[in-house]
Design a protein around this nucleic acid. Structure first.
Lengths: 218, 218
DNA sequence: AACATTGTCCCCCTTTTATGGTATTGTAAT
DNA sequence: ATTACAATACCATAAAAGGGGGACAATGTT
C-alpha cells in the first residue's frame, strides 16, 4: 500500500560518509511518515540541490566537502528560510556548535545518537522544537551562564588593573594611561602583565576584544 | 523493601503552588531511583534550605515568592556549584528564559510537560544534559541566529581590510593574520595603515575597540 | 584615455609592547 | 607575627607595531 507522500516529512541528507549516509537512508526511508527525497556526498551548489527536491528537513554533516556544513547552512538558510537543518556530526567542540547555530541550524545531533532518537528529533524540529544531544544542550546552556560569570570576572582584576584595562579599551597607549593615572609607565607595564595573566591573553588587542565581547564594562 | 537511598537522585522542589508541588511529589517520590528530600513553598533563606537537604537536583518555580526563582538560582549556584537546577514554569517569555539560564539554571521545563518527560529530564541533567521543552529549545537556538546581522559602517572598508580587522578583533598579530590570509605581512601592514586612515584611529586597540563598541561585526 | 580603487609587496626607521625578572611599601587577613 | 595581596617602580632584551615612503597589476569609472 502506497502511503500518501503529501503527509511524509521530506528529508535530504548531506554526508560524505557513505556508510552513515546509507544507514540514515535505511533508517528513515523505511520509517512511516518519513521520506528521504535525496542525499548528497558534497555541498557543491547546495542551493540548487535543495531547490530540486525541496525537503522539509535537512540532515547536514558538519564536515561535508568541499567547504563545510556551516557554509552550506548559511547558503541554504539565505534562500530557504523555512527548511529546518539538523547538524549531524562527530564534533563536540564549542566553536563548531556555536558557528552552526549562528549560521541557522535548528538542531545539533552527535553521530552516536541512537536511531530512535534521530527519528524523534526530526519529528521534533517539524513540531517547532530544537533537538540537541544532551551534551550539546549543556554546552549551549553554559554559554549563557558563562556570560554572567564573566561580567563578574572583571572582579578578578584589582581596581588599578581595571583602570588600566579601561584605558586600553579607550585606545590609550601605556604612556597615555600612565599620564592619566599619574603613575609611572613602568607600573602600567606591571599591571598589564598581571592583566594578561588573569585574562589568559597576551596582547592589548586580545584583552580589549575579550573585555568588550564579554561586556566586562559598561 | 527499602531501596538504598545512596543510589537515589535526591530532589528538592521549590514551588508555591500546592497542587503542583503535590503532584510533583507524588510523581517523583514513588518513582524508583528518585527521592524527594524536601519541598518548599517559598525561597526565603534558600541557601540554608538547600544546605539542610543537599539535593542533587532542584526543581524551581520561576515565580516563587518572596523574590523570584531567578534570584534563588543565583543564590544557590553561588554556594552550591554542583547542584543542577531545572526551572519549572508556565512562562515562555524570552526574558525569563535567558535570565534563568544566565543565573545558572541547567534545564527549563514548561509546567505542561508530561510526567514521563519530567522524569526523563531529571535523569538527563544528572547525566550531564540540559533538558528543555521543545519551544524553549527553539528560542534558545534563535538567540544565536538573530545575532549575526552585519552593520553598515564596516562597508567603508574593503573586503580585505575587513578580513584584517576581523583578525585584529580575534586578537591576532600581523603575523598570524598574514598566515591566515596567506599573504605577506607587508601587505597586512598596508591594510592596517589604510584601516587606521579610514577609521581615524592609530593603534590596534583603538580600531578593535571602535569596531566592537559600534558593533561593526556580529 | 585618464583616473581611482583595490590587492599585493617592499624598505627604512622609530616607538611601543611583550616577557622575564626584582623590589619596596602599606594594608588586610590569619 | 607572618602571610598574602595590592600598588608602586625599575631594568634588560626581543618582538611587534607605527609612520613615512614607493611600486605595480587588475578593475572599474568617468
Amino acid at each position: 500500500m502506497q502511503i500518501n507522500n503529501e503527509l511524509n516529512i521530506r528529508i535530504t541528507i548531506f554526508d560524505d560518509n557513505e556508510a552513515i549516509c546509507n544507514s540514515l537512508y535505511q533508517l528513515l526511508h523505511y520509517t512511516p511518515g518519513f521520506e528521504v527525497v535525496s542525499f548528497f556526498k558534497n555541498c557543491e551548489n547546495v542551493a540548487d540541490k535543495v531547490e530540486e527536491c525541496l525537503p522539509r528537513v535537512i540532515l547536514m554533516d558538519i564536515n561535508i566537502p568541499p567547504t563545510s556544513g556551516i557554509e552550506a547552512v548559511k547558503e541554504i538558510k539565505r534562500k530557504f528560510k523555512t527548511v529546518d537543518i539538523i547538524m549531524f556530526t562527530v564534533f563536540e567542540e564549542e566553536d563548531k556548535i556555536f558557528e552552526a547555530l549562528k549560521a541557522g541550524a535548528t538542531g545539533y545531533l552527535l553521530k552516536k545518537t541512537p536511531p530512535l532518537k534521530i527519528i524523534e528529533s526530526i519529528q521534533e524540529v517539524v513540531a517547532g522544537g530544537s533537538p540537541m544531544s544532551a551534551s550539546i544542550a549543556r554546552k549551549v546552556m553554559n554559554f549563557f551562564t558563562q556570560q554572567s560569570v564573566l561580567q563578574n570576572n572583571k572582579n578578578i582584576l584589582t581596581r588599578r588593573e581595571q583602570d588600566v584595562l579601561k584605558g586600553l579599551i579607550d585606545g590609550q597607549s601605556y604612556k597615555m594611561i600612565a599620564i592619566n593615572l599619574s603613575i609611572s609607565i613602568e607600573t602600567i607595564r606591571t599591571y598589564i602583565k598581571r592583566i594578561y595573566d588573569k585574562m589568559h591573553v597576551n596582547s592589548m588587542t586580545e584583552a580589549v576584544a575579550k573585555a568588550l565581547k564579554e561586556k566586562w564594562f559598561e
